[in-house]
Simulated assay, not measured.
Amino acid sequence: MNLAQIGGEIHSKRIQAGLLQEHVAKFAGLSRVTINQLENGTLKDLGYTKLKAVMDILGLDMETVQPSGLKSALTVAARSISTSYRDVMTPDMLSMVLRSGQAPDQFQPHLMALLDETPLPVVVKAVAEAATPDVPAKKIMKHLSQWAKQWKVCRTVW
């Protein structure tokens, strides 16, 4: 598989995940222009480390298939963000909150942990799992971005 074919797979997966090129660029530490060129097949070369960073964000491996390691990102994320708190956020609750964009006060610290500490590939996959035809992943990403600004989280990618 060549770089142009990989770029096409990256484009498809990015759209499916509801991410903008700008999001993927920030998450991977690249420019939006580089992501655009990668997706359009006009990028001549991209080092392994940079390409891997983009693919990891989208849950792709070098064969551009879903890696088998992460079965339910919502479960992993819910468990991870509930570790330090008495109130436990279940995967179903996390999914509902992500879709609604309404963060109950008692779960604001959990969601801040999601935005600041949860590995980005887990967040991206959890968003994709929570998405529905009525609430696409792109809308959920907007909710995350709004919360990040409102709560002034430390991770600057939002």
Score class of each variant (00 low, 15 high):
L120Q: 14
C154L: 14
K149S: 14
M96G: 10
A130I: 04
I35P: 04
L144P: 03
G101M: 07
T34C: 08
A113I: 11
K149M: 13
A73F: 09
Q66A: 14
L51V: 07
A103I: 10
A130M: 09
S84P: 07
P121T: 03
I81H: 00
M96F: 11
R79D: 15
L144I: 12
G59N: 07
L43K: 12
Y48D: 10
E63D: 14
A148M: 05
L70T: 11
Q106R: 07
V88D: 03
K139C: 05
D105T: 12
I81Y: 00
L58W: 05
R79W: 10
D61M: 05
E39Y: 04
Q146G: 10
Q150K: 07
S145F: 08
L70C: 10
R155F: 13
W151D: 07
S100F: 09
D61G: 08
K125C: 03
T132V: 12
Q106H: 07
P109E: 04
W151L: 10
S72K: 06
S82I: 11
I140D: 04
G47T: 03
P133R: 08
Y48T: 11
P91Q: 03
Q37E: 11
V123K: 00
D87R: 00
D45S: 13
T64A: 14
D56I: 01
L94N: 02
L46W: 01
R155N: 15
A77E: 00
A77F: 01
Y85M: 09
I57P: 02
S31V: 03
N40E: 11
M55Y: 06
P119Q: 02
T34W: 00
P136R: 12
V54K: 03
Q37S: 04
L38W: 01
Y85V: 10
N36S: 15
S31N: 06
Y48F: 13
M93W: 06
L120Y: 03
L98N: 07
T49S: 10
S72W: 10
F107D: 02
T90L: 15
L120E: 13
D92N: 12
P121A: 01
T75C: 06
A131F: 04
S82R: 04
A53S: 14
S95D: 05
